[in-house]
Amino acid sequence: PDEFRDPLMDTLMTDPVRLPSGTIMDRSIILRHLLNSPTDPFNRQTLTESMLEPVPELKEQIQAWMREKQN
């Protein structure tokens, strides 16, 4: 489902985090971005790792969907 895909890389998220802007991304992708630029890739506001907020409900939904697909 589209809501499980990272908006920057269009890959399935495994550890979704919410940026201060409200955008949800995969943690590994935003951390890689932050190594090059300490900004939100969508609005260029300053962004640090400590500002990332886990989204455990979405992570659980993704994991359940993945388990379902394996069966």
Rank of each mutant, 00 (worst) to 15 (best):
P1A: 05
P1G: 07
P1M: 10
E3N: 08
F4K: 05
F4A: 04
F4V: 01
R5N: 07
R5K: 09
R5F: 11
R5T: 08
D6T: 00
P7H: 00
P7T: 08
P7Q: 04
L8K: 05
L8Q: 06
L8Y: 06
M9N: 15
M9C: 13
D10E: 10
D10Q: 09
D10L: 05
D10R: 11
T11R: 07
T11W: 03
L12E: 10
L12Q: 07
M13I: 13
T14E: 15
T14V: 11
D15E: 08
D15H: 02
V17W: 00
V17K: 00
R18I: 01
R18C: 06
L19M: 09
L19F: 05
P20T: 00
S21V: 01
S21D: 02
S21Y: 01
S21K: 07
G22Y: 00
T23A: 13
I24C: 04
I24T: 05
I24K: 02
M25E: 06
R27Q: 00
R27K: 14
R27G: 01
S28W: 07
I29E: 03
I29G: 04
I29C: 09
I29A: 09
I29L: 06
I29D: 04
L31G: 06
L31V: 15
L31F: 04
L31I: 12
R32E: 15
R32H: 12
R32S: 12
R32V: 08
H33I: 05
H33Q: 08
H33C: 09
L34C: 04
L34S: 03
L34D: 09
L34V: 07
L35D: 15
N36F: 12
S37P: 03
P38N: 15
P38W: 02
T39P: 00
D40E: 07
N43V: 06
R44V: 07
R44A: 13
R44F: 14
T46N: 15
T46R: 14
L47I: 13
T48F: 00
T48M: 10
E49R: 10
E49K: 10
S50C: 02
S50Y: 11
S50Q: 13
M51R: 07
L52S: 04
P54K: 00
P54E: 13
P54A: 05
V55Y: 05
V55D: 01
P56I: 01
P56T: 06
P56D: 04
E57N: 05
E57V: 10
E57W: 13
L58E: 04
E60R: 09
Q61K: 14
Q63A: 11
Q63C: 06
A64I: 06
A64D: 14
A64S: 13
W65K: 08
W65H: 15
W65G: 06
W65Y: 05
M66W: 14
M66L: 15
E68N: 05
E68S: 13
E68Y: 06
E68C: 07
E68K: 11
K69F: 11
Q70H: 12
Q70W: 05
N71V: 15
N71W: 15
N71D: 15
